[in-house]
Design a protein around this nucleic acid. Structure first.
Length: 823
RNA sequence: GGGCAAGUGGUGGAAUGGCAUACACGUUGGACUUAAAAUCCAAUGGCCGUAAGGUCGUGUGGGUUCGACUCCCACCUUGCCCACCA
């Protein structure tokens, strides 16, 4: 029987139904068995699944099935990150209710996922827009509030005019909204924040334990958290009570500070210029900067502009009076919003000083040009050197001086060693409808009051009017906003902001452990058994946002005493994108390939095999229709081969009769394949795992018609089906049954183990090089000594010809591999 | 500006100090067939050569080594991340 489209679908549907009906993938806590938690980043339910999903979930499924076969108790759940803007946009555009639209998309997605044959425990399915999920978002928020980790603060925030909502720092990319790419503006608003900075030290420190994460993700997080050591230095302002505190990582250059710069937004600016003749000019500049877009201001080539405030500070180490400027290149959001400028040793300061004719002073000597003067300088000297013009620190290496000067200033009371972080608190308020309502009520008498636990969840009203204009639609729903104060009973008003959806996805992996538990956020015992996630798989685009937030939540839950581990995800794999014609597949580009259409033609197994075979999982994958055809051909070959085996009359002879050389060789190849496939799946090398199964197939195909080999070949065929089963589960399940095996499913059959002794070869091939160039190959006994080998090789005519009468300088022997004769 | 990847046949890729191009796709030729599809077999980096064989060849240029796709230095290109971060 040919592996026709018709038969493929019959087989795939048959086994999908069987797995589903018999709940083959239902995971239950069993302390006698070792657990393995495989998790993929759950999808936003936008409708049909795309190739990116297929790739992500196929990788995960392969690993999950591999662990199941190995006897682990595997948890492999699926759900939907279902709150968010696309549903609302669909509502604005087509007038459908976001809830209705989302649940419909989820149905579509579930159908697609089931057709891929993924090994999910569907009983744990969850959606973040379900009331019994977001109820716990609200509960978590309250827990954070009680501990001061959730708070409301008025400040200048990132605002996307198109989405009409605030954005977290992490959601602003190059000054643009991460979702719609519209330029973000700053707006003064009172908003809810989570105090992620409370955990900055732990978030940074524990990155060291994540040795099974891609190093670049760790580096990106490190960078984002951004810890820098430096000194806060105090500069007295002449004629004022106030002082300017600057932060610097370069205390070694303090003697070269020739002016000080404040950010335009710095609160001291107004104070020191008020009523002076500079006030007007300064205010005009501040306004100009405020109107500049964030994008323009951060672009590196932008000319640095600034104005003099008319005031002076005193350099605390040498008493020198230096001018105070304000400039657009100093940012209020980092450090203290004020810097000391050392134009001779900082390129930005150099450019600014040159532009504005500000004084300079060299304090680090360039060893290659020790006599250089300020006038001869063409750019800042930023390399190492010894200090000059720096009083008692002259002659010291500048790197050593950083700490020494810092400590000295601390002892003098003119400075303080300090640590600065780039990480800001996480802004979670969104002025949008389709999200978790923040469980807070505003009362004129009692202030901010949280909704009591017994009133949770604060249910998001459905079927309301969504226009996309005039702020959050919730503002216009009186039944929602008008409430009684839970504390005093008077009329009060409900918070209409909803939570950023990254809140929802920061803890869903814990909820899967007891997804249907209505009494608590998650079951402690279940979480203690299943967590941490052994293997997490998703896109690199979440390297900072989602993964950082999840790490924060995990640390918070540990402090709550609900869990006793520090990090949620032990191993992380970030899969590459799927491209078509060199570009990322996207609807807007119109270069998408519908996975469902591929399944209709070739079946899910061919699609799965193809997507794993085409490229290593972390690399970009260029989609090629022809490649599915190749996978299908290979599966057809396997199917035909096993069919032939089923027809043959076989007995259990393997290992009983003495094997001849041919048998031994087949047995060796089989064991080598088992070893390679096992190791490759563990190391994410699915493409080479598949190629080695192909090699095994090519090898046994030679034995097909040799009747006397039938038993051995049959045994090898069984193992081949087992090895292939994580990649092409439907077909392998079918073939396993056809081979007359008794197990209910192939997962019950144990993953084959390899025999090291079978890998040993009696004869091996030795490569012969002369002066590093390949000149011949010899078959020799595996246990040949160097001397024996030397004799054999040097006696060879060809070798003799190459060596001729040149003296042999060296004879290099790499055991079991090669010899290299140097003449 | 800083950081991190990557660069190998016509194509996807393999090899991480030891036979460069495994495995596949594609292409060409052959077998089977009335024919086609499917299947099976064979060939498939460039150049020289009838052949045996030789020679060049992993972005570019150097280096280390008996030996380099692999390690080191510099550069070029592409991708990603961060970015007036003091």
């Amino acid at each position: 029987m040919a592996y026709s489209t018709h038969e493929i679908h019959a087989i795939e549907e048959k086994w999908q139904k069987y797995w589903d009906e018999h709940k083959i993938f239902k995971a239950e806590k069993d302390t006698d068995k070792e657990k393995y938690y495989v998790l993929e980043m759950f999808p936003y339910p936008s409708g049909k699944i795309h190739m990116g999903h297929v790739r992500n979930y196929t990788i995960a499924d392969c690993m999950a099935r591999f662990r199941m076969s190995q006897g682990y108790n595997v948890l492999h759940p699926m759900g939907y990150d279902a709150f968010g803007q696309p549903a609302e946009n669909a509502a604005i555009k087509n007038g459908v209710d976001p809830s209705e639209w989302t649940y419909k998309c989820m149905d579509q997605m579930r159908t697609n996922l089931k057709r891929m044959g993924f090994s999910y425990d569907w009983d744990r399915e969850l959606a973040t827009c379900d009331e019994d999920y977001y109820k716990w978002n609200q509960w978590i928020f309250k827990q954070m509030m009680e501990r001061g980790l959730a708070y409301k603060k008025a400040s200048s925030v990132n605002w996307c005019p198109d989405c009409e909502t605030t954005l977290a720092n992490e959601e602003v990319i190059n000054g643009e909204c991460w979702r719609c790419r519209i330029q973000v503006v700053q707006k003064d608003l009172s908003q809810w924040y989570l105090k992620i900075t409370e955990y900055n030290e732990k978030l940074l420190e524990d990155l060291k334990t994540l040795d099974k994460w891609p190093s670049r993700v760790v580096a990106m997080q490190e960078n984002w958290i951004g810890k820098s050591y430096g000194v806060d230095m105090f500069f007295k302002i002449k004629g004022f009570q106030e002082q300017v505190t600057v932060f610097t990582t370069r205390a070694d250059t303090i003697f070269g500070a020739t002016y000080v710069v404040l950010a335009p937004e710095h609160p001291l600016v107004k104070i020191i210029t008020k009523g002076t003749d500079k006030e007007q000019e300064v205010n005009a500049f501040i306004e100009k900067v405020a109107n500049e877009s964030a994008l323009l201001r951060v672009s590196g080539d932008q000319k640095k502009e600034g104005v003099f405030t008319g005031q002076y500070v005193v350099n605390p180490v040498n008493g020198q009076e230096v001018p105070i400027w304000i400039a657009d290149y100093v940012l209020m959001g980092y450090g203290t919003g004020a810097i000391m400028a050392v134009p001779t040793h900082d390129q930005r300061d150099y450019l600014f000083a040159t532009e504005n004719n500000l004084p300079m002073k060299i304090v680090i000597q360039d060893p290659s040009n020790p006599a250089i003067t300020v006038d001869e300088m063409e750019c800042a000297y930023v390399e190492q050197g010894v200090l000059v013009n720096s009083a008692q620190f002259d002659g010291l290496n500048n790197v050593e001086a950083i700490e020494k000067i810092g400590k000295w200033m601390e002892s003098e009371g003119t400075g303080k060693m300090s640590v600065r972080w780039r990480l800001r608190d996480w802004l979670i308020s969104r002025q949008r409808y389709w999200g978790t309502p923040i469980p807070v009520i505003y009362c004129d008498d009692c202030g901010i009051v949280t909704v009591p636990d017994e009133d949770l969840p604060v249910v998001l009203p459905k079927n309301i009017k969504i226009t996309g204009e005039g702020g959050s639609p919730l503002n216009y729903v009186k039944e929602f906003t008008d409430v009684k104060c839970p504390a005093c009973g008077k009329d009060a008003r409900r918070e209409t902001d909803t939570m950023a959806t990254f809140f929802d996805s920061s803890w869903y992996y814990l909820r899967y452990c007891s997804a249907k538990d209505e009494s608590q956020v998650f079951d402690k015992d279940e979480a203690a058994y299943w967590m941490e996630v052994d293997q997490y798989i998703g896109g690199i685009e979440h390297a900072i946002l989602h993964l950082l937030y999840s790490r924060f939540f995990t640390k918070f839950f540990k402090d709550l005493g609900l869990i006793d581990f520090d990090e949620p995800f032990i191993r992380l794999l970030t899969q590459g994108m799927v491209l078509k014609d060199g570009e990322v597949m996207s609807k807007s580009k119109g270069n998408t390939v519908d996975p469902d259409a591929v399944i209709s033609k070739y079946g899910a197994d061919s699609l799965r095999l193809c997507i794993l075979f085409a490229a290593p999982p972390e690399d970009q994958l260029e989609w090629n229709d022809g490649a599915v055809d190749g996978s299908w051909k290979f599966l057809s070959r396997v199917e035909r081969f096993i069919e032939d085996q089923c027809d043959a009359d076989c007995q259990e002879l393997l290992g009983k009769a003495a094997m001849d050389d041919e048998d031994k060789e087949l047995n060796r190849v089989l064991n080598a394949t088992i070893k390679k496939v096992t190791e490759d799946i563990e190391n994410y090398k699915f493409n080479t795992a598949i190629s080695s199964i192909m090699i095994l197939m090519n090898h046994i195909a030679k034995y097909k018609y040799a009747q006397q080999k039938q038993t051995l070949v049959n045994e090898v065929g069984k193992k081949l089906v087992l090895l292939l089963s994580p990649f092409a589960p439907h077909l392998c399940e079918e073939l396993w049954q056809r081979l007359g095996n008794q197990e209910k499913t192939i997962m019950e059959a144990k993953w084959p183990e390899y025999d090291e002794t079978a890998l040993v070869q009696d004869n091996i091939q030795i490569i012969v090089q002369i002066n590093g160039k390949l000149r011949g190959k010899f078959d020799v006994a595996a246990d040949s000594t160097e001397d024996q080998l030397k004799e054999i090789v040097l006696a060879d005519d060809k070798v003799k010809q190459w060596v001729a009468d040149k003296p042999i300088k060296k004879f290099i022997y790499v055991k079991g591999k090669l010899v290299n004769i140097v003449v």
